[in-house]
């Protein structure tokens, strides 16, 4: 199970070409001042903004996709996604709290922009709670993780609603915009570098864990009997998936379905071996989010472009149902 097959190599090349095409398309496409769609090489200032957008989308796409593979393996559930652990709800609560506290202290809302630090703080807090409560006999237990994740999501959801109830209308719209998931063209360079490094390290670590994740597809007793230390592996996978998801949420908000669909799309093309799957899913993540962001430039709706989170949900939802009904939603 160590060599890459010819079929897998061709699949990876296809995905790399699609990712490159998505990046080039996003770089070239924009709307003019009269709202017409223009295809051309952008001027330097515009190009800078567009490169940032591409970087944000690529980093979020890779992070969510790799996190999706890790969580589907960790929870032994092909329908698991990065937000199953309550991370997005925790991040949303962090943002809502920051916005509301800012309002109480007389600061104006950020106007629908990114809230990386509150999002990160909320996501990591949720992750810690799920980690502490998701253990059984001293090790992380997949079923406990899912149940605790659902409960943490529900509690965060209730607290968000309570804060929304207390907050004036303008503040609510700020949070709603953030919740849609948005590719921002003006993200601070430090955040971009930190999340980019996290995504690359996560990708490399995910690929390195590939053989262990293959072995982890066996039941616990059997996996241990072939030499896999399943407890430590689960801990590493959980932390890696949690940090990657937190980074993606801090960067672009809670963008749904990428972490669910990217692993499945890669699996259809490359098969179930995890080392190759992680690399393939990362490329699919880039295609989905950079391509999705480019598509959102084309879809002009009143009040601005369609948020990419709405686009991925509209594409991902039917794809998810197709996976379920066709029986392809298997690992």
């Amino acid at each position: 199970m160590r060599r890459i097959t010819r079929k897998q190599l061709i699949g990876l090349v296809i995905l790399a070409v699609l990712a490159a095409a998505a990046i080039i398309t996003r770089l070239l496409i924009y709307r003019g001042s009269d709202d017409s769609l223009i295809w051309s090489w952008p001027e330097s200032g515009i190009a800078e903004l567009r490169r940032t957008s591409i970087a944000v989308a690529a980093i979020a796409g890779v992070s969510l996709a790799v996190s999706g593979v890790l969580l589907q393996a960790l929870l032994r559930n092909p329908l698991a996604s990065p937000f199953i652990l309550g991370i997005s709800s925790g991040a949303a609560l962090g943002v809502m709290t920051a916005v509301y506290v800012g309002h109480l202290m007389g600061r104006s809302a950020a106007g629908g922009g990114a809230h990386p630090l509150p999002a990160l703080a909320g996501a990591l807090t949720a992750l810690c709670i799920v980690y502490l409560l998701g253990q059984r006999r001293g090790w992380l237990d997949p079923l406990s993780l899912v149940l605790v994740g659902v409960v943490v999501s529900a509690i965060c959801g209730a607290l968000i609603m309570f804060l929304q109830h207390l907050a004036p209308h303008g503040l609510r719209s700020d949070l709603v915009t953030w919740m849609m998931g948005y590719i921002h063209p003006d993200v601070p360079a430090a955040l971009l570098i930190a999340t980019g490094a996290t995504a690359l390290l996560g990708l490399a670590a995910g690929m390195a864990l590939g053989r262990a994740m293959d072995a982890g597809t066996l039941e616990d007793d059997e996996a241990r009997s072939i030499g896999l230390a399943i407890g430590p592996l689960r801990l590493v996978m959980f932390l890696l998936a949690g940090v990657l998801t937190s980074a993606a949420v801090a960067l672009a908000g809670p963008i749904g379905f990428v972490g669910l669909i990217a692993p499945h799309a890669a699996r259809l093309l490359l098969g179930p071996r995890h080392a190759v799957l992680v690399a393939g899913a990362a490329l699919v993540g880039v295609v989905l989010l950079v391509g999705g962001d480019a598509t959102c430039q084309v879809i002009n709706v009143s009040g601005g472009r369609m948020p990419v989170g709405v686009f991925t949900a509209l594409v991902g939802g039917p794809a998810f149902i197709w996976l379920l009904r066709s029986g392809r939603g298997r690992a």
Partner: peptide, 23 residues
């Protein structure tokens, strides 16, 4: 013994093996 040390001495066949991947 660690899992790895044990795996070098003994192999195990469960009553029913479930593999959560289409290998």
């Amino acid at each position: 013994m660690s899992a790895r040390q044990l795996a070098r001495r003994a192999a195990y066949v469960p009553q029913r093996s479930v593999v959560a991947a289409a290998f």
